[in-house]
Amino acid sequence: MKKYLIKKIFFIPLTFLGISFIIFFSINMLPTSILATGYASTDKELTKKDIEELIKKYDLDKGILKRYISWLSKTFCGDLGYSTSAKMSVTDAIKLYLPATCELALFSIIPIFLIGNFLGLKSAFKRNSYFDKIVKFLSTFFYSMPSFVIGIVILYVFYGIFGIFKPQRYSLETEILISSGNFTIYTGFMILDSIINLNLQVLFDSLMHLLGPSLAIFVGTSAIFIKITRSSALEELNKDYVRMLKAKGLDYNCIVSKHIRKNILIPQITIGGFQFIRLLSGVVIIETIFDWPGIGSWGVKSAWQLDIAGLMGFSLLISAFFLIGNLVIDILYVIVDPRIRYD
């Protein structure tokens, strides 16, 4: 186990290096003058003469490997460059956008786990009942719906028709209130901050804005979570020990909470963990639809505007989430099921 972990942890930086090279290589197919903007540190630098200087300074007219090494040494010093789409340095942009994405991800993953668990187990137990059929139909239905369709439909129904669940993170009044100085930002999580500040208006407002995108994420993601819970619970139910427990006279609740729930944790962690990483890496599409100022919409914006530094920073951050998340999932497997050993 230890050996496996050490090997895994040793491989993460190597894989990360590979990822950074692949992303760097793909981006470097762009013309040199566009690339040079990625090396600027403020907006003011970007005159024609400055771009020529930047090209010289960072060897942009040299071979790809040399450029990569010069970029790498710059990155290792903590300088990720200046993001022209966010109008601030990449590190600042990440600091600004990451809490918004985390808030959205956490806010939507908890109901997915709770409700998905409940519905999946219930429909497995009442197999072929009407309840099961409805759950199965709905989960197939929403599973087949692309995330942008879900997002658009939810925005259309709740914002276009009913006028609630507005896009963006907070309304104009709240933004004015936040920037007025009477509101201190501690964590960047609007809900937590408003509770600390004891400000009900901000709390209500940010909740109303949070509900739309998290409903969209919930609908799309819980479908797959319900499916996996249901099918793995069904598999467990067919096993001999469950029959024994039933024969022993244990009731439904006891079998579920003491036995089934523990035994289906592995597939749930696989799917749930993967979905959570995906959420953290900015549900690019949902954030774009709801104008949510998170990592994902920043990434799309920097792709539109060919903001090289922003695009690099965004994709590296997401890949880092993927790598670390997968490691955490691997470790969780062992904690949940001691039979699993990586030898």
């Binding site: 590979g18 990822i19 692949i22 793909s26 997401i318």
Partner: peptide
């Protein structure tokens, strides 16, 4: 390496370029 970048993100970068 390729599989550890989300496919939408990598495809997005290549398509943009």
């Amino acid at each position: 390496v390729i599989l550890s970048v989300p496919s939408l993100v990598l495809a997005m970068i290549i398509a943009v370029v």
